[in-house]
Amino acid sequence: TLATPAVRRLAMENNIKLSEVVGSGKDGRILKEDILNYLEKQTG
């Protein structure tokens, strides 16, 4: 899974598996926005 260290840390802090997040960046890269959108969906 393609993600920057900052995105990986954000995911780890929120107990998110990067494999569950759909990346919207180039080549499927997971962006910070993708993590935040995933969190919004989870908290509903």
Results as ranks from 00 to 15, higher is better:
residue 1 T to S: 06
residue 1 T to C: 06
residue 1 T to W: 03
residue 2 L to C: 07
residue 4 T to H: 07
residue 4 T to G: 04
residue 4 T to S: 14
residue 4 T to E: 04
residue 4 T to M: 02
residue 5 P to R: 08
residue 6 A to P: 08
residue 7 V to C: 01
residue 7 V to H: 03
residue 7 V to K: 02
residue 8 R to F: 06
residue 8 R to K: 15
residue 8 R to V: 12
residue 8 R to I: 14
residue 9 R to V: 07
residue 9 R to K: 13
residue 9 R to E: 14
residue 9 R to T: 06
residue 10 L to A: 04
residue 10 L to I: 08
residue 10 L to V: 07
residue 14 N to A: 06
residue 16 I to R: 01
residue 16 I to N: 01
residue 17 K to G: 06
residue 17 K to H: 09
residue 17 K to C: 07
residue 18 L to E: 04
residue 18 L to C: 04
residue 18 L to G: 03
residue 18 L to M: 07
residue 18 L to W: 03
residue 19 S to W: 05
residue 19 S to L: 04
residue 19 S to Y: 06
residue 20 E to H: 11
residue 20 E to F: 04
residue 20 E to K: 08
residue 20 E to R: 08
residue 21 V to Y: 01
residue 21 V to G: 02
residue 21 V to T: 01
residue 22 V to N: 11
residue 22 V to K: 15
residue 22 V to I: 12
residue 23 G to K: 01
residue 23 G to H: 00
residue 23 G to N: 11
residue 23 G to D: 01
residue 23 G to V: 01
residue 24 S to A: 03
residue 24 S to C: 04
residue 24 S to N: 06
residue 25 G to H: 01
residue 25 G to P: 01
residue 25 G to E: 02
residue 26 K to Q: 11
residue 26 K to W: 03
residue 26 K to A: 12
residue 27 D to W: 04
residue 27 D to K: 07
residue 27 D to H: 15
residue 27 D to I: 00
residue 27 D to M: 04
residue 28 G to R: 03
residue 28 G to D: 05
residue 28 G to Q: 06
residue 29 R to K: 13
residue 29 R to G: 07
residue 30 I to G: 02
residue 30 I to T: 02
residue 30 I to M: 03
residue 31 L to G: 06
residue 31 L to Q: 10
residue 31 L to P: 02
residue 31 L to H: 05
residue 32 K to H: 01
residue 32 K to I: 13
residue 33 E to F: 04
residue 34 D to H: 00
residue 34 D to V: 00
residue 34 D to W: 00
residue 34 D to S: 00
residue 35 I to C: 08
residue 35 I to H: 04
residue 35 I to W: 02
residue 36 L to T: 12
residue 36 L to C: 03
residue 37 N to G: 13
residue 37 N to R: 14
residue 37 N to Q: 15
residue 38 Y to P: 06
residue 38 Y to N: 08
residue 38 Y to L: 13
residue 38 Y to D: 07
residue 38 Y to Q: 13
residue 38 Y to C: 15
residue 39 L to E: 09
residue 39 L to R: 14
residue 39 L to P: 07
residue 39 L to K: 15
residue 39 L to D: 07
residue 40 E to D: 14
residue 40 E to M: 10
residue 41 K to I: 09
residue 41 K to A: 15
residue 42 Q to I: 06
residue 42 Q to P: 13
residue 42 Q to W: 07
residue 43 T to K: 15
residue 43 T to R: 15
residue 43 T to I: 05
residue 43 T to P: 11
residue 43 T to V: 13
residue 44 G to T: 13
residue 44 G to M: 09
residue 44 G to K: 15
residue 44 G to E: 15
